[in-house]
């Protein structure tokens, strides 16, 4: 399963692909919703390492439009709940993640993304 919390930390790792290699773009996704325990402290803790715009766009790609386009200065409980849902409860189970730069396709099948590279793609 790929959740947006992990997707937001994942860049393309093909050899030489170092610019515009984040975020990977979701394609043809099927998602599954799974409830997870709400932990506001954990979400707050993760915020500093997340890319907001990438998160908002990825959430759209998996069918969630609840997040504001700009990262608000204040995180109230309602927003933390929305973030929790987007980051932790949406699981991508089929589809692909595509690099905008080198176009490498990381297929997602049965919940598991295939991150294996071909010999010529290894750095």
């Amino acid at each position: 399963m790929v959740r947006l919390i992990t997707h937001n930390l994942l860049a393309c790792h093909v050899k030489g692909c170092t610019t515009n290699n984040f975020p990977l773009v979701f394609q043809d996704v099927q998602v599954e919703l799974q409830e997870a325990e709400f932990n506001p402290d954990f979400i707050r803790n993760m915020l500093s390492r997340l890319e907001w715009t990438a998160l908002v766009n990825a959430a759209k790609q998996v069918g969630d439009t609840s997040l504001p386009l700009e990262q608000p200065d204040m995180m109230d409980d309602e927003l933390l709940q929305k973030l929790h849902h987007a980051l932790m409860e949406i699981h991508v189970i089929e589809g692909a993640m595509v690099c905008q730069n080198c176009k490498h396709v990381y297929p997602i099948s049965n919940g598991i993304p295939n991150m294996l590279l071909a010999e010529h793609e290894i750095g």
Binding site: L9, N21, L116, I122, G123
Partner: peptide, 9 residues
Amino acid sequence: QGFGFRPGS
């Protein structure tokens, strides 16, 4: 083959 995770993930 190495990881593609962003710095400080």
